[in-house]
Amino acid sequence: MTTDSFHDRVALITGAGSGIGRAMAVAFAKAGARVVVCDINGESAERTASGIGDTAIAAVADISDEASVAALTETAISAYGRIDVLCNNAGIIDNMALPADIPVEMWERVLRVNLTGTFLVTHAVLPHMLREGRGAIVNTASEAGIRGGAAGAAYTASKHGVVGLTRSVAWAYAKEGIRCNAILPGPTLTGIATAEGVRDFDPAGITRLGPVLALGEQMAQPEQMADAALFLASDAASFVNGAIVPVDGGWSAG
């Protein structure tokens, strides 16, 4: 991308306090965008925003809470007047438990953040994109969104849901100039948080999932995920809509 390919555009990025989200925020800022750096951890959001400079603001939000998401959207609109790009990146992992073993509370929390949270932010931002007649949404799904054995039951279900939501939004709003795509990161050096209650990973789940996980031993840098998101949100991808893009070094090809 050229250094000004997102000039005069506004990008809202969730989970931007660390890892892939932080790399996305930096990448969009370097490409000329004004960035709303959202994270549930205010200090992390501030560090990312201050590292970018005066073209970024920090915002604290719990994406699983509708009122918090409404306040986040209002912060972005008040600051910049519109939202051109949404990167739904925030998420949490489970303890890798198999379906018979995962606590119901953990299931509900992971689904609430990863899937319902992605929906809530999309739901809040879409009216503003519709008003402008354009917009690009990039969801961070996962390799677990297309596999059954790459993560625990809750995380796998949530990311399959994100893939379905991505396709639904892409189909519903293509004629309104809004595109929605998803990246599927493979193993990445990132700071994804664990769900509340996770102290140790489930041994049975790790043992069962081990052979599949071993296929993805090559670790990616967060910046490699950010580059893919930047492309999908850019005019270079203007006819790419509803795409589910593995960014996994070939893991899904095997």
Rank of each mutant, 00 (worst) to 15 (best):
P187M: 15
V85R: 01
A151E: 05
W107L: 15
V36R: 02
A226N: 13
R47K: 15
V163D: 03
G32V: 11
A226Q: 11
I13T: 09
A153N: 06
L130Y: 00
S142R: 05
P203L: 11
V35W: 00
E46R: 15
D235Y: 00
M106T: 08
N241H: 08
L111I: 14
L215C: 06
A195M: 06
T3G: 04
A76S: 15
Y155L: 10
A25L: 07
P203M: 12
S142K: 05
L230K: 02
A27Y: 03
I57N: 02
N89S: 06
E132F: 03
V69K: 06
L115C: 12
E46F: 06
E217I: 08
A136F: 05
F6M: 14
G148S: 09
Y80A: 10
D235P: 00
L86F: 08
V110P: 01
H7F: 13
T194I: 07
Q218F: 05
I137H: 04
A23P: 06
S238N: 06
F119V: 14
V245P: 04
I244T: 11
L213E: 01
G81E: 10
W251T: 14
M96T: 10
T156W: 00
H160E: 13
A49V: 12
I83G: 04
N181A: 12
A172I: 06
T207F: 00
D84H: 07
A97H: 00
A61T: 03
V26M: 05
G117K: 04
A79V: 13
A124S: 14
S168E: 07
T116I: 14
V104Y: 10
M219W: 08
G21P: 05
E217R: 12
T73W: 02
D62G: 09
T14A: 08
N139H: 13
G133V: 11
K159W: 12
A157C: 14
I183S: 03
W171H: 11
S158R: 01
G17F: 07
S68N: 14
K30A: 12
